[in-house]
């Protein structure tokens, strides 16, 4: 037990929690925007892969790190455009299209990787984002170490704040939320349901891709085929866990990251010697299912989620 307490009070543990939470926060915010507008985006897993790949490849080709972030976001928005065209004006099954987008985006990343690096056996490394030194803050005991984070992490939290502000404090946010609850009423106001939903999916997909790019540009310094490893699906669970609210979703991501950081450390303790390491690795997925079960009784789902809207049809 004392081992766990030692872990929980160490600054390096909390630094890891914030680091692990960052890509989840970015992608969860992306998914949340889509779902608040009424579109389930199962393309998230593949869009994170394409973000991780394009961001890394852009930097490897000589672009600055923020350029890589921008490239990743653009690539994500492109797949978001594809998803939204098929699901919004055409109203196709969001399940099937989402899975198709995930398959296409993942395959595109693999194809492009092999095309651009035909011979390599291990992927080349880039110089990733480094922890920011913030005068004053970084010199504080404990807190300075826990908040020793890269600019992309600070960006992730800023994005979460911006998403919350936009959704709840601006007319645009009101329209996005309304389009996920009652699209006919939005149309009656003279606003375009199609435009709002497509915009939400495209912007949301851009954020998912930046979440993916966090993995290559901030967390690791290379691209691996399996590196997203279900994080996208976990983010979908986090949106449900957060009851479709940005603040709660961020808390969920941090809670989730805490469990993830804890399981990595527990593997090195006496517990890790007894239990198979696969059990620790499965913990994030088991927790996600548990979160879905716990939150299932709450009826806060956007009313028009997964309901296509066709003008003139009542």
């Amino acid at each position: 037990m004392s081992e766990i307490v030692d872990i929980l009070i160490s600054a390096s543990f909390w630094a890891a929690v914030i680091r692990i939470a960052s890509p989840l926060i970015l992608a969860t915010m992306g998914e949340l925007i889509c779902e608040r507008a009424g579109v389930l985006n199962l393309g998230i897993e593949g869009i994170m892969v394409i973000g991780a790949f394009t961001g890394w490849m852009a930097v490897y080709q000589g672009m600055p790190l923020w350029g890589g972030v921008a490239v990743a976001m653009a690539a994500g928005m492109l797949f978001g455009l594809l998803h939204s065209v098929l699901t919004v004006p055409f109203g196709l099954s969001q399940h099937v299209v989402g899975l198709g987008v995930t398959l296409l985006a993942t395959a595109s990343a693999s194809f492009a990787y092999r095309l651009m690096l035909p011979q390599v056996t291990s992927p080349p490394k880039i110089t990733p984002f480094q922890p920011l030194y913030i005068p004053g803050l970084s010199d504080l005991p404990w807190l300075g170490a826990a908040l020793s984070q890269t600019a992309l992490t600070w960006f992730a939290f800023a994005v979460a704040g911006l998403v919350a502000f936009t959704l709840y404090r601006t007319p645009l946010g009101l329209a996005v939320r309304a389009v996920g609850e009652n699209p006919a009423a939005v149309e009656a106001q003279g606003l375009s349901v199609t435009g709002l939903r497509m915009g939400a999916v495209i912007v949301g997909s851009g954020l998912m891709a930046v979440g993916g790019a966090f993995l290559t540009l901030s967390a690791f310094s290379s691209f691996f085929f399996e590196m997203v490893n279900g994080r996208g699906w976990i983010c979908i669970a986090l949106v449900v866990f957060g009851a479709w609210k940005p603040g709660k979703a961020v808390l969920g991501a941090i809670l989730f990251a805490a469990f993830d950081a804890l399981q990595i450390r527990l593997q090195q303790t006496a517990l890790g010697a007894v239990l198979p390491y696969q059990l620790f690795l499965a913990l994030p997925f088991l927790l996600s299912i548990l979160a879905l079960i716990l939150m299932s009784r709450r009826a806060e789902v956007p009313a028009a989620l997964m309901v296509p809207y066709n003008k003139g049809e009542r």
């Binding site: 594809l82 098929l86 196709l92 099937v96 398959l103 395959a107 595109s108 693999s110 194809f111």
Partner: peptide, 13 residues
């Protein structure tokens, strides 16, 4: 993989 994902999306449309 790219072709099959493309075929899926084209086909549902």
């Amino acid at each position: 993989d790219m072709l099959l994902a493309t075929a899926l999306l084209f086909m549902v449309l």
